[in-house]
Design a protein around this nucleic acid. Structure first.
Lengths: 210, 210
DNA sequence: GTCTATAGTTGGATAGAC
DNA sequence: GTCTATCCAACTATAGAC
């Protein structure tokens, strides 16, 4: 092997490095999503990962580096549901499928949703570049698709940007405001997601039907 | 006056005490809403209030006390729009008026919205009692009103809880995710709220019309 | 009532042994 | 690669002069 550069956070080489890197990111997702960046401590992450604090910093150079690695790795997953919306499908069914995919994300990846929510509520200090880049580009592209659907009378005329905002907000609400939702509904497990799916499908079907 | 108990944080007596208490709470709202509880520091609040750090702690016994006083003082304001929804008005117009009041709150009081959002995203550690108390009671009451409107065929049948969730999420989105909204729309000032109002009125009118 | 100075803790990051 | 010990900066809160 000879001399090896120490950048395991970027390029995990060995199996043990890869495993530890993933363990740390998993623990960091837990802690960052629950307490926000400033509220999270390396001690908490280390404990959750079952490693010592210095060992964390062997794999990542700093606290911000862990946070950044998390966000970079999750951004694609987060944009995926919108990417999958096909311009050549049935417009209403494509949009409703998007709504349900987004709701599924809120149910299956609530920590990821709260990670982003924490960031954006506080002004998106660490991800503004990605919002203004990847996200904005994707939104512009899909807004054009929606406008084309409107132009051909396939869906009712709506502001495509505010349509997307309302899809994001209504679905992510079940992850980001989970504490409030559960306090009001006190559901068993995720049972309320069934009602949510039915409600949101009705909401957007009525909005979009010409 | 004789011996005076030092509890200015709770019971401001003199004019200067009242003024300083309000100045502190105003500054604290700025800082807490932008950085969350852990992310906010007394230095930031003191600087924003134009006072020294120890002087802050003369009026409030601790950092948490400032936060608690803020939330206690704002909870009523926050529930007001829903309280104003009258059971004896025209159902659809009452609900749409509620939507627009809530959107107005997001425009006029974005800091308050983000203060609550920060809390709830992180599991509502400091306001769960109020969510399970005042908020839940109010929601139960208004859910009954909505169900009565459905029973008499005044509005389309919908799950009242999820209806309220969707009203909260769509309107508060413009305050809580302001950074993202502006990055995508880059509006001048609050100009996008006009489009949002039109969109949301259409959305909920179509949802509720029998 | 308000300030300077500081005590007491916590948290991010490093040193160095193994 | 991993740990113990530790440094140093930041932060909440208090002491005490004015």
């Amino acid at each position: 092997m000879g001399i090896e550069r120490h950048m395991p956070g970027r390029q995990p080489r060995t199996r043990i490095q890869k495993k530890n890197t993933e363990t740390i990111l998993e623990a960091a997702l837990d802690v960052f999503s629950q307490h926000g960046f400033r509220g999270a401590t390396l001690d908490q992450i280390a404990k959750a990962a079952g490693l010592s604090k210095p060992n964390l910093l062997y794999y990542f150079p700093s606290k911000v580096a862990i946070h950044r690695a998390l966000i970079d790795g999750l951004m694609q997953t987060w944009l995926d549901p919108l990417r999958k919306m096909r311009a050549d499908g049935d417009p209403i069914e494509e949009l409703l499928a998007y709504v349900l995919r987004k709701l599924d994300m809120a149910r299956e990846y609530p920590r990821e949703s709260r990670l982003f929510a924490n960031e954006i509520v506080q002004g998106a200090p660490n991800i503004m570049d990605k919002i203004e880049g990847e996200l904005k580009d994707l939104v512009e592209e899909k807004a054009k698709v929606i406008e084309a659907w409107i132009a051909t009378g396939k869906i009712a005329p709506v502001n495509p940007y505010h349509l997307l905002f309302s899809i994001w907000s209504t679905t992510q609400h079940y992850a980001d405001f989970d504490a409030q939702v559960r306090a009001i509904l006190h559901p068993e497990g995720d049972s309320h997601f069934t009602d949510a799916a039915e409600y949101l499908e009705t909401l957007f079907r009525r909005m979009l039907t010409p």
